[in-house]
Nucleic acid binder design. Structure first.
Lengths: 351, 351
DNA sequence: CTGAAAGCGCTTACAG
DNA sequence: CTGAAAGCGCTTACAG
């Protein structure tokens, strides 16, 4: 008869068995440190008494390791969980963590980081930080001693994983320009210092290349324009603040609803989400893709490859990006700046 | 000159300032427990010495609360992060947790739960378990004393959040049957005990209604069939194991490629993902929707409402489901069985 | 192969 | 308002 104590601890179990706490701990953690017979006895008694194994909280304090890796997302969790690209990144991270007995804690850099949340952050053994940080705040609140890997942006001396944004963008722009367009439009993501959904004017200051990958992508487009005798300054740019259908749609509608002689017949989009939204809105307006409007995307998400017309885009392997970041944070790979390759996919939206 | 010690603790800081550790702790946690002046002095010295605040690991052990809630997903993380419905659920959970200073730990029930991962599970203050469990294993390894909420399935005495699957399915089937079809087909998700991608035969044992929501949905269809004078046993059922394009496609292709006089002209699908895949494959084959083939989905995901033809479906509010589960787990709402309402959306795929 | 003991870094009654 | 002290539940040298 065991009195069903509120909560049985390793110490209780040791007392019950008449062995030391060290032996109980070893029975669970280091089988080689005690005789099989004793181990068996401990384990079966544990089961009988409903002891589930050493408490993770105490273990974590004692060993200094929680086996938790935190992913700090620049966007809201809502966005990050629903966006194909960041889902893939998380997938890759989760895969590696899982294989190595670690788990994933999700943090968002968007909430101003109530003390509580950033307090919890210090549970993690390491941090993977993804995307443009709205402020350095949360970053400064992270425990400074623990490993950190940045993904898709740069933190001074820290290791990072990123892709060749400029050359990739140059490639896809060159592909598109091989068939001379009458009028080009560029659709960017988070380019301007202050939020802007719509046409970008000369006066608006831009975010630095350190803070947003958009700059590098735009540079790639501009280099391609110049090589094809097009003045980059002559190509209109529309900016979109969030890579979701609902935010993209009004901006794109405003472009597609321009008079025929002002509407671009080639739209270079900085994400597949933007390009797909353009595709849907074009279809609704009876504009044929690619005959009346050619479209290019970026990312190579599944949704763009499953529907007709298939998107012409740059495929990046976000899952692999996640894997690499996770391996670095676990120390399975040397922490350094690692550049992943991308690939041009020629689909039907811009043959 | 502070010797940049490896790691400064609350105790170090107290010693440095000549105050007790209690005061330092209070300075961070209970401002009302000490004079503003002392608090100011402690906080500024902390900043100067680079003390980031009380260590979450120690705090967690001491207080017994980690401010971490674990979500245990029946599917792989890869699937869960990329599926629209479970992403939405996570979104709702994250929203509430965030608002209350908690963070989200992601666990998958699919990996057989290496001791390590299930050990980490015990860091969490509570558990939200989502979807059909492949085995009771992980569930048994969760700390039995802590709160748990089940979503979309039933664990004996535990609180749960779910939807009215049977009536909702009945509704949409009735809507579809209002226009008499020549031949009906039903596409289920995880219906059979043993994995099956394709036509379900009489002999295959089915999962119980306790374990899969598919049973309740099928019951709703069958009730509608009976009410319309159709023998449920005469309607063929195809099963799909995973709600992804790649797994759906071959099964659906096999249906669409049946001879004209065997191919259903109405497909009742248990998810929008299935219905959308059917839509794409139908288009590729030159089948017109809804003229040649009518389709209904389930879930009401965004992707199905943004493209043409819009999906006829049952909308469930997965975000809200997540919110409710999170509120229950945080004790903001009484833990009980809570049923959320759904809504029939009549789109173009089955007008 | 086994056990006694220290200590991980905090928080919280409690006494002053 | 402040401080001395106990203890959360473990793991890990270390001695036997």
């Amino acid at each position: 008869m065991t009195p069903p104590s509120r909560h049985i601890t390793l110490k209780d179990l040791a007392r019950e068995l008449g062995v030391s706490t060290a032996s109980v701990s070893n029975a669970f953690n280091r089988p080689d440190q005690l005789s099989p017979r004793l181990r068996e006895r401990i384990l079966s008694e544990a089961q009988r008494l409903g002891y589930q194994g050493p408490d993770a909280r105490a273990r974590t304090l004692r060993t200094g390791r929680s086996r938790i890796i935190a992913v700090v997302l620049a966007e809201t969790l809502t966005y990050s969980l629903n966006d194909a690209v960041s889902s893939e990144l998380l997938t890759g991270i989760a895969e590696v963590l899982d294989d190595h007995g670690h788990t994933l804690l999700l943090l968002s850099g968007r909430q101003p980081g109530s003390r509580q949340t950033s307090g919890t952050a210090s549970m993690a053994d390491g941090f993977i930080v993804y995307g443009l940080m709205p402020s350095a705040m949360l970053l400064n609140e992270l425990p400074s001693q623990r490993p950190l890997v940045a993904v898709d942006f740069n933190i001074d001396g820290q290791p990072m994983v990123h892709i060749d944004n400029e050359p990739a963008s140059h490639d896809i722009a060159c592909h598109a320009l091989a068939t001379p367009p009458r009028r080009i439009g560029v659709l960017t993501l988070r380019l301007t210092e202050t939020p802007c959904n719509g046409r970008v004017t000369e006066e608006q200051p831009w975010l630095t290349a350190e803070r947003t990958i958009t700059r590098a992508r735009l540079d790639g487009f501009h280099r391609a324009f110049a090589e094809h005798g097009i003045d980059p300054a002559s190509v209109p740019v529309w900016n979109i603040e969030e890579n979701t259908h609902d935010v993209c749609a009004p901006v794109i509608a405003s472009i597609l609803d321009l008079p025929d002689d002002e509407r671009p017949d080639l739209l270079l989009c900085m994400s597949d989400r933007i390009a797909l939204t353009a595709l849907t809105l074009a279809e609704q307006r009876g504009l044929r893709v690619p005959e009346d409007l050619r479209l290019t995307g970026f990312d190579g998400i599944a949704e763009g490859q499953y529907r007709a017309p298939r998107l012409t885009t740059i495929r990046q392997d976000s899952v692999e990006k996640g894997r690499v970041a996770a391996r670095m944070i676990l120390g399975l790979e040397a922490p350094r700046a690692q550049l992943l390759r991308t690939e041009l996919i020629v689909g039907d939206s811009c043959p």
